[in-house]
Design a binder for these strands. Structure first.
Lengths: 154, 154
DNA sequence: TAGCCAAACAGAAATATTTACTGATTATAT
DNA sequence: ATATAATCAGTAAATATTTCTGTTTGGCTA
């Protein structure tokens, strides 16, 4: 649970962009030998700075052609209703992202599906089945201009 | 540019969740020997199904405490204005995501910063400097209930 | 300033994995 | 049924990871 020094930060910035870099690549990029680099990378994972390593797949190529943003308003804001909604919405594999927004206690969902038919099926069979939903508002995404997992650390 | 069979799909579903799995781990998980597994993983990368491998870092631990959604409306929708906006907004490191939405030719931005001060600085110094912006509407994120890069392939 | 302690480093050795290659098996189409 | 192509398992060589040891560095106290 240490703090990050400038070397750690450089390592994180590298691995966020490309984790297929080997320890050797990273070490030469930051100008350190292999062993301290290895130890630092392990520590960053162990301490939770690095949550996980994942493969990013091409959405279009796996047939998820439609991205939808959907705003959800609930009928009530009781703790119970909120928690229940959050726990359910989380489990839907079509839902990539769930954000609770300030202002109206609204939720914003990002949903990836094959096409409009699939989205309709999702709304009818899954989303609208959740209790206490007052309002749903869907916006189709025309173009994904940027989608980045890496955050530049300063 | 082949199509995916059921083994490919299982591999992608695994690596999307955890790419630190070695070829050996994947091979035993899918019940194939190492060499065809290795060949399949390479092919998935080569053919662009796997775009990249990345490390996912904990946003809070690197000090990005504030997540903001910002809707941008442009004054005009000429091709030139749109392209120019898109190219500029892409370059800002605070901006993780840029989506072009159907309906009003609006854009939605997802922005990660340290705090409200930093967000204000970002808006004043960067975002609002882009020409032809008619309207900006910011919503702070109270809670990130889900944020998943993996999409289940069927 | 000298001496001590802890942290970080480089280098090397042991282990494990990746990668390339070979031959065998399976599936497919004619 | 046979030929062709694709996929597979197994093996071996090349690379990379991981551990270990000893050294250096930096900071702290007396």
């Amino acid at each position: 649970m240490e703090k990050l020094d400038s070397i750690d930060i450089r390592i994180l910035n590298l691995l966020q962009k490309d984790s297929s870099l080997g320890v050797k690549d990273v070490s030469s990029a930051i100008g350190l030998s292999v062993s301290p680099t290895y130890e630092r990378i392990s520590r960053l994972k162990r301490d939770g700075f690095i949550e996980k390593y994942v493969a990013i797949v091409n959405r279009e190529k796996i047939g998820k052609h439609l991205l939808v943003l959907c705003t959800v308003t609930l009928k009530q804001q009781s703790m119970e209703t909120l928690v229940s909604f959050e726990q359910t919405i989380k489990t839907f594999k079509e839902v990539l992202e769930v954000l609770c927004l300030a202002g109206n206690h609204d939720y914003l969902l990002k949903i990836a599906v094959k096409d409009v038919n699939d989205y309709h099926a999702f709304v009818v069979n899954k989303l609208s089945q959740i209790p206490n939903i007052a309002n749903l508002q869907s916006s189709f995404v025309l173009k994904e201009i940027k989608n980045e997992t890496a955050m530049e650390i300063i």
